[in-house]
Amino acid sequence: MTDAEFPWLTRRRALAAGGATLGAFTLAGGTLVTAQEDDDDDDENGGGQGGGNARTYRVTVANLTPGQPFTPPAVALHRPSVQVFSVGEPANEPTQQLAENGNLDPLLELIGQTDAIRTAAVGGSPLVPKSDPGETGLPYYSSLELSADASATHMTVVSMLIATNDGIVGLDTVELPSEVNASETHYANGYDVGTEENTELYEDLVPPAQSLILGGEADGGTAESNPDLAEDGVIRPHPGISGDGDLDPAVYGWDEPAALVHVERIE
């Protein structure tokens, strides 16, 4: 990994501010930022401190896989009480909808209703592997700038592994750097949310699973959950691509970590 691959290592700038992705994910739009009003119950919400003293962070998410596209990454800055997803626990509805269908609507609704989430943003397009095997012209990394009050001490990042039945890549409740100009680099793994069987069939995956890697038009696909494939499981490390269906492990498989997340406090 070199400075040339990740320009934020050598110069400060946001590279790919983009748009909110809703439903089965659109590919463009304006950056979504959701901020909560300050309240007086910080201790109840897990903050333990009053708001104020806005802090600004730049968060860069990069796709490290050779053959797995991501939905636009969602980044939330929040108090430590927030848990969007947790390994070993059942997935909530927003995580299920993102993991199975690329649907961010329930997650955005959760953000809007949760005071402990102080701000959030969603990237403007899917992130494809650096080699761009489907010749999409889409980026493999994206940067977002977010500002929140001092009670937002932690960050969560989540995105769908598009060419899976119910896979996500992300970080759950990691601590933010506290000092201006301080930065941290995290590596994020893939997770199976345990809500849908891993058929690895294009007809059971969202349509871009095929076109973003192989190019051309998708042959079938769905952006709706199929009750016949439902599992009653918990979030766990993703087993990867087995090759039992339409997905070739040599094309769609990956080694962990699946993503790099760099966060810098800039103000």
Results as ranks from 00 to 15, higher is better:
Asp115His: 13
Pro80Ser: 09
Phe85Lys: 05
Gln96Met: 05
Phe85Thr: 05
Asn92Lys: 11
Pro106Ala: 12
Pro94Val: 05
Ala120Asn: 04
Gly123Arg: 00
Pro126Glu: 14
Leu104Lys: 00
Asp105Cys: 07
Gly123Thr: 03
Glu93Cys: 02
Gln96Thr: 07
Gly124Met: 03
Glu100Gln: 15
Thr95Cys: 10
Glu100Pro: 11
Ala91Leu: 06
Pro80Gly: 10
Asn103Cys: 14
Gly102Gln: 07
Pro90Gly: 08
Gln113Met: 04
Leu108Ile: 14
Val82Ser: 03
Gln113Arg: 04
Glu89Lys: 06
Ile111Tyr: 10
Gly124Lys: 00
Gln97Cys: 10
Leu104His: 04
Val84Ser: 05
Ala91Cys: 07
Phe85Asp: 01
Pro94Lys: 03
Ile111Ala: 10
Phe85Pro: 01
Ala121Gly: 13
Ala99Gln: 05
Gln97Asp: 11
Ala116Glu: 13
Leu108Gln: 13
Glu109Cys: 15
Asp115Tyr: 12
Pro94Cys: 08
Gly88Tyr: 00
Thr114Gln: 06
Gln96His: 06
Ser86Ala: 15
Ala121Cys: 12
Pro90Ala: 05
Gly102Ala: 10
Asn103Leu: 13
Val128Ile: 14
Leu98Glu: 09
Pro126Asn: 14
Ile117Met: 07
Asp105Gln: 08
Val82Asn: 02
Val122Arg: 01
Val128Met: 11
Val128Gly: 01
Ser125His: 06
Pro80Met: 08
Gln83Ala: 03
Thr119Val: 14
Glu93Met: 05
Pro80Glu: 08
Gly112Cys: 00
Pro106Phe: 07
Glu100Thr: 15
Pro106Ile: 11
Glu89Val: 03
Leu127Cys: 02
Val122Cys: 08
Gly123Leu: 01
